[in-house]
Amino acid sequence: MRSDPKSSVPKQARSVARLAAVQALYQMEVSSAGAETVIREFAEHRFDRDVPNESGEDMTLAHADEAFFADLVRGVVEHQKSVDNAIAKRLASGWRLDRLDATARAILRAGAYELSYRADVPTEVVIDEYVELAKSFFEGPEPGFVNGALDAVAQDTRR
């Protein structure tokens, strides 16, 4: 069964938006930049730009669903207390969210926001997408940790 190429574009655009949102959340945490500043920076300087590849030729970065990206970043910031509580509730005894790596924290926050506030996105899609993102950043147990944590958040938020 072949997939319709038109249907894969939004999926890829959302995947790119999720990656960018994780990067933006990380950037906000380490630099204390505000959401609107980072959203504007990504829109003006990172999305749909030609960048040199390894051979020095320009290649266009994949298209991102910029509205989805902005919703993820703004949503995590707006609902950070409830998002963090949803994650913290499912961490092992003695663990705190601030003990986690900043990248893992950004991945979990974006995923927990989607699970809690974006009912239009299927649970399996959210978990799979953020586990794949974790795999792109980590080689150790972190992807499994992200899978377990987001699955637990989904059980709490999507009954």
Rank of each mutant, 00 (worst) to 15 (best):
R74Y: 05
G75F: 00
G75W: 04
G75P: 00
G75N: 03
V76G: 00
V76R: 00
V76S: 01
V76I: 05
V76C: 04
V77S: 11
V77D: 12
V77H: 05
E78A: 13
E78R: 06
H79S: 08
H79D: 09
H79F: 06
Q80T: 12
Q80L: 12
K81G: 08
K81Y: 09
K81E: 14
S82L: 09
S82P: 02
S82W: 02
S82G: 02
V83E: 04
V83Y: 04
V83K: 02
V83R: 01
V83T: 09
D84P: 01
D84F: 04
D84R: 06
D84N: 11
N85T: 11
N85M: 13
N85Q: 14
A86V: 03
A86F: 00
I87A: 03
I87P: 01
A88W: 02
A88H: 04
A88Y: 00
K89F: 14
K89H: 12
K89A: 14
K89R: 15
K89V: 09
K89L: 15
R90A: 14
L91N: 06
L91P: 02
L91V: 03
A92W: 10
A92C: 03
A92Q: 11
A92M: 11
S93M: 08
S93D: 14
S93A: 14
S93T: 11
S93Y: 09
S93H: 09
S93C: 01
S93I: 08
S93K: 13
S93R: 09
G94H: 09
G94P: 06
G94Y: 06
G94I: 05
G94N: 05
G94D: 08
W95V: 15
W95A: 14
W95S: 14
W95M: 14
R96S: 10
R96F: 09
R96I: 03
R96Y: 03
R96Q: 12
R96L: 06
R96V: 04
L97G: 07
L97K: 07
L97H: 09
L97E: 10
D98P: 00
D98A: 07
R99L: 11
R99N: 11
R99P: 00
R99F: 12
R99H: 13
R99G: 12
R99M: 14
L100V: 07
L100I: 08
L100Y: 05
L100T: 04
D101L: 04
D101W: 01
D101T: 03
A102F: 10
A102P: 12
A102I: 12
T103M: 15
T103W: 12
T103Y: 12
A104M: 15
A104T: 14
R105F: 08
R105E: 10
R105Q: 15
R105W: 05
A106R: 03
A106F: 05
A106N: 06
A106W: 07
A106K: 03
I107A: 07
I107D: 09
L108S: 03
L108H: 03
L108Y: 02
L108K: 01
R109I: 00
R109C: 01
R109K: 10
R109N: 01
R109Y: 00
A110D: 07
A110T: 12
A110V: 09
A110C: 12
A110G: 14
